[in-house]
Design a protein around this nucleic acid. Structure first.
Lengths: 135, 135
DNA sequence: CAGCATCCGAATAGATACTG
DNA sequence: CAGTATCTATTCGGATGCTG
């Protein structure tokens, strides 16, 4: 387990200020947030599309999450004047950079909770998943 | 962004049952959970050590989180009889497997929120971080 | 369509004190 | 040491209805 060694080293570094794991979860750890990001990666950039994509999220909550993400600099909200005005949400670079983290989350449950994630209930390693998807 | 393509493919797969990102966050997305796991990776395996390591967590909350993790099969609780009885928490394989995910979380904020994570406020890529730590 | 306003309820977390 | 027991405080999310 290579990462364990490096994880410990992070905190031993004199340049270390605060826990980077904690920081990431401060930004994307709230309920619904990662699902909103997932939808943005899927290409949904309108309020309604995000809403239906996420599922049963309440409009108030979605509105709050979008504000959170905008405040965090992960998405941009663009208004195109007209009737009606058109609002579009797009990922910034900081937002786009979260993708490997989301992918890592997906990999974990695909390998370790296959019974809830896959119909066949079989677990797949990252390599198998990637190979499977390329075909 | 390689992962984006694969992320979309996951949901298109006819073998797909439920969102793997959502599933991972169901397990480790609650407040404090990842910090408890972090402490376990650091070698803390007693209630008290985990508690002080995590910081200001309430014993009731820590107790709940440990139960959550045990129910999820990520940790094991071992009791050694004696006076007083000794309780030890250890990561199972399923628990150990979460490390790349935690590492991925750390990488994100080290690269994208350096001002809160590092004293020098500079961002580091994964490669720089790894190189820096090896030296 | 893209939200906001209001009200309500549930779920959590925090504080504190206590126990085998 | 490793929790449990209360009690309180607060946050958060859900439901519903409304608006430019």
């Amino acid at each position: 387990m290579l990462e364990g060694k490096y994880l410990a080293a992070i905190y031993a570094d004199p340049n270390h200020r605060s826990c980077p794991i904690e920081q990431t979860f401060r930004i994307v750890g709230k309920k619904w947030t990662v699902l909103v990001l997932r939808e943005l990666f899927f290409g949904a950039n309108r309020f309604g599309r995000i809403k239906t994509g996420v599922g049963s999220i309440n409009p108030k909550v979605l509105s709050n999450r979008l504000k959170d993400l905008e405040d965090a600099g992960m998405i941009k909200r663009d208004v195109t004047p007209g009737r009606p005005v058109q609002i579009e949400y797009t990922l910034t670079e900081k937002g786009t950079n979260i993708l490997p983290f989301l992918f890592s989350a997906a990999k974990y449950s695909m390998g370790n909770c296959p019974e809830v994630v896959f119909k066949d209930g079989k677990s797949y390693t990252a390599e198998e998943i990637l190979r499977k998807m390329s075909s």
